[in-house]
Write a protein that binds this DNA or RNA. Structure first.
Length: 551
RNA sequence: GCGCCCGUAGCUCAGUGGACAGAGCGUCUGACUUCGGAUCAGAUGGUCGGGGGUUCGAAUCCCUCCGGGCGCGCCA
């Protein structure tokens, strides 16, 4: 729909009614749905944006374009545009033809579950790495946002026509693992857990669950005991993490371990690649990456003076490994506290010859969890945290998904768990789900009365603004997906879902769908309502939220 | 101190150059002997943190100040 108008305007511009200008000065043609019905169905501010480069008044330009659109018969040659108006200070407002809207709606309905799934001009392969929490404790609410944001973004980019790989990175070789081991050993032996160790109840549970033979075997290893125990525990914890994520509705395609990057030589080769490019230097016995050459404020150590590689070394190898799999873009979903590491990673990628623009970090702001008005700690170290499982059990996956989907990732948010539970009945997510259930109920009733949806809504829109409004709302989904994918934010999808549900409820009030005495009208209205139901289901599906038949 | 993010209605948040700044929740009024009242209609409510500047036009861009979060390791 948007393409149609944009194309018509482009042709109007090309017909000579306006001075021609270079492509560089030509603003992108944006056509959007009018928020105010008085402004037509779709509107564009193109004339306002052209005023400067053309050095003519917005009204004059708008009038010229509108005249072209009004006489564009040969190009449009049908009923797609019903009217074109110019409104101060230079907006071009258009109304779409009923026939065109009806055909569009029939087409959307025919697509069924795939309506809203866009076909990309070129399929891009995108890798999205998220969560990647160390296997030193269960996932907490602190990991929740990353999990939701990563999953939602994955779904969104897939809907926009990309091929997405979901990836989880485990640190299995670091000090944290041995610290976990020593914490468990202390618990097992009935000694106090080290100050900097892990104090959560799960550590005690693991210590108790640990089979005697594991404990004895590890105890014989002396120096390696902690690491050995830590590995055992990490495996157990990892299984729990995977289970939590499944519960949340997230599936990962790739589980990558830090150890494998070394075992397969990726780190070594990446370092060699940087070395041959002249991007490494030695100082104070350590090996450094010259990150400042690419704009970073400091150079970064890759190999410590003691010969051990840093976390960053693995990151470098990982980037090369990811690109070797043929991705067009790598997205990292990180907490905002990682923003200091963004530059070095992109710099290293560039230094190795990759396109730094293909390495994108999406940083999400912290969530402040509150329970009963009090601060809820989520530190694993402190041993007091709300686990992701608890959150899902209390609030529900649908509500939690909606909560995170409806807020911009860069915005710090407060999450009062008790309030979220209390408000569940008034939660917008249930409002939208209710609309779906209500339509499902109507369809059931129709079926019982021997009525079924017509194959087309043709003839239902003429002179009926109520129906037309619902039709327009249904038809907006593709551009909602496009805009959201382009912005890489999902809150546009949740607001659309709410608007669609609201529009339906208003329709429901004003138009009786089922009328045994008028089977033809009933069938047409059932078609419109069924398209609405499908669109609500698809929109919720995009967010991983259930669309129930009844509730 | 330096860097990044944020400050919009009582609350939670949209709006990142355009038409009177929007939504949900909250509060207050109303609406069913008809398809699900978990609904609908209306009302209430904002110096867009303060102050300068750029622009025909600024919540949006620039500068500055105030307030909050995060980061500035040979930790991960």
């Amino acid at each position: 729909m948007r393409e149609l108008i944009a194309g018509a305007i482009a042709r109007a511009m090309g017909s000579g009614a306006l001075p021609t200008i270079g492509d560089d000065d030509r603003p992108e043609i944006e056509v959007s749905h009018a928020a105010n019905p008085e402004h037509g169905d779709v509107t564009t501010n193109l004339a306002l944006r052209l005023a400067r480069p053309l050095r003519r008044s917005p009204i004059d330009i708008a009038t010229a374009i509108a005249d072209e659109l009004g006489e564009i018969g040969p190009h449009v040659s049908d009923d797609r545009l019903a009217s074109v108006e110019v409104a101060p200070p230079g907006f071009i407002n258009m109304r779409l033809g009923d026939g065109y809207l009806e055909r569009s709606l029939d087409a959307a309905r025919a697509l069924g579950a795939s309506y809203g799934q866009l076909a990309a001009h070129r399929v891009r392969h995108i890798d999205i790495e998220f969560v990647s929490a160390n296997p030193t404790g269960p996932l907490t609410v602190g990991n929740a946002r990353g999990a939701f944001v990563g999953d939602l973004l994955s779904r969104l980019l897939e809907a926009a026509g990309n091929e997405v790989t979901r990836e989880y990175y485990f640190n299995d070789t670091n000090r944290q693992v041995s610290l976990l081991g020593s914490s468990i050993a202390a618990r097992r032996a009935g000694k106090p857990v080290p100050e900097d160790g892990y104090h959560g109840a799960y550590v005690a549970d693991l210590a108790n669950e640990m089979p005697e033979e594991v404990w004895e075997a590890a105890s014989r290893e002396d120096e390696e005991r902690d690491t050995s125990l830590g590995r055992w525990a990490a495996t157990r914890i990892r299984a729990g993490i995977e289970a939590s994520l499944r519960e949340l509705g997230v599936r990962f395609d790739v589980w990558k371990t830090e150890g494998s990057l070394y075992a397969e030589g990726w780190v070594e080769r990446a370092i060699q690649r940087l070395r041959s490019g002249g991007h490494l230097f030695e100082q104070d016995g350590a090996l450094w990456f010259c990150s400042t050459a690419f704009g970073d404020d400091k150079d970064r150590v890759v190999i410590r003076a003691n010969g051990t590689p840093t976390y960053f070394a693995a990151d470098i190898g990982y980037v090369a490994e990811k690109f070797s799999r043929g991705f067009d873009e790598l997205i990292y979903v990180w907490g905002a506290d990682h923003h200091g590491t963004v530059a070095r990673n992109r710099n290293a990628a560039e230094a190795m010859g990759f396109d730094r623009e293909a390495v994108q970090m999406l940083l999400y702001a912290w969530v402040h969890f509150v329970r009963d008005g009090a601060d809820a700690s989520m530190s694993k170290r402190a041993g007091e945290f709300i686990s992701l499982d608890e959150l899902l059990a209390e609030v529900g996956t649908d509500a939690a998904r909606w909560y995170f989907a409806s807020r911009a990732t860069t915005t710090g948010i407060d999450f009062d768990i008790e309030a979220a539970k209390d408000q569940s009945a008034a939660n917008p997510v249930h409002y939208v789900r209710y609309a779906h259930a209500r339509i499902s109920s109507i369809l059931r009733k129709a079926s019982e009365a021997g009525l079924s949806p017509h194959s087309s809504v043709a003839g239902t829109l003429a002179g009926d603004d109520i129906s037309k409004r619902l039709c327009l709302a249904v038809l907006r989904l593709p551009e909602v997906v496009e805009d959201a994918a382009s912005a890489r934010e999902t809150h546009g999808v949740t607001s659309y879902a709410t608007e669609l549900a609201t529009t339906f409820h208003a329709y429901y009030r004003d138009r009786r769908v089922l009328d045994a005495a008028d089977r033809e009208t009933s069938a047409r209205r059932l078609a419109l309502v069924d398209a609405t139901r499908q669109t609500i289901a698809n929109t919720l599906g995009l967010l991983g939220i259930s669309a129930p038949q009844s509730m």
